[in-house]
Write a protein that binds this DNA or RNA. Structure first.
Length: 136
DNA sequence: GCCAACGTTGGC
DNA sequence: GCCAACGTTGGC
């Protein structure tokens, strides 16, 4: 099972809203980057992603699960991009970007190395460590 | 609010 | 097919 991280500006779509959407989930539309698209295409149903608040908060705040694999994004008029459906699994005590950057073993996280990647893979070790930090 | 990093667009 | 100009993201 691969692990992922998806980003959203809470002013546009927050984890609280994701929780409100319930088990029906929502489509993760709007990705317009080819590398991020590759990651979306690689997602399998049942795989989990960290939900990261960018700009405001700058922290991992929860876990979401893939409930529908890659399909066309109807909001993309070029027809090139797609999306997956995600549902909230659970909230996490926030793990801030600042905290992640202070952890040497997380120095290779895409979140640290390429701050603009909106959908990114997370290694098993990174996943476990961030959960550890969340647990305090 | 600024700006660095990076992706995309379009002229040539 | 190159690359300058431009737009966007997101940390600070």
């Amino acid at each position: 099972m691969a692990r992922w991280l998806v980003k959203s500006e809470p002013a546009k779509w927050s984890f609280a809203q994701q929780v409100e959407a319930g088990d029906a989930g929502t489509h993760w539309n709007g990705v317009r980057n080819h590398v991020a698209k590759q990651h979306l295409m690689a997602m399998r149903v049942g795989e989990e992603c960290f939900f990261y608040h960018s700009n405001e908060g700058k922290a991992v705040v929860g876990v979401v699960e893939v409930i529908k694999p890659y399909y066309p994004d109807h909001t993309d008029e070029t027809g090139k991009f797609g999306m997956v459906d995600l549902k909230a699994v659970r909230a996490l005590p926030p793990v801030t970007l600042e905290r992640i950057k202070r952890e040497p073993r997380l120095a290779e996280m895409v979140l640290v190395r390429n701050s603009r990647m909106s959908v990114q893979p997370v290694t098993e070790a990174e996943w476990a460590l961030v959960l550890e930090l969340a647990a305090g």
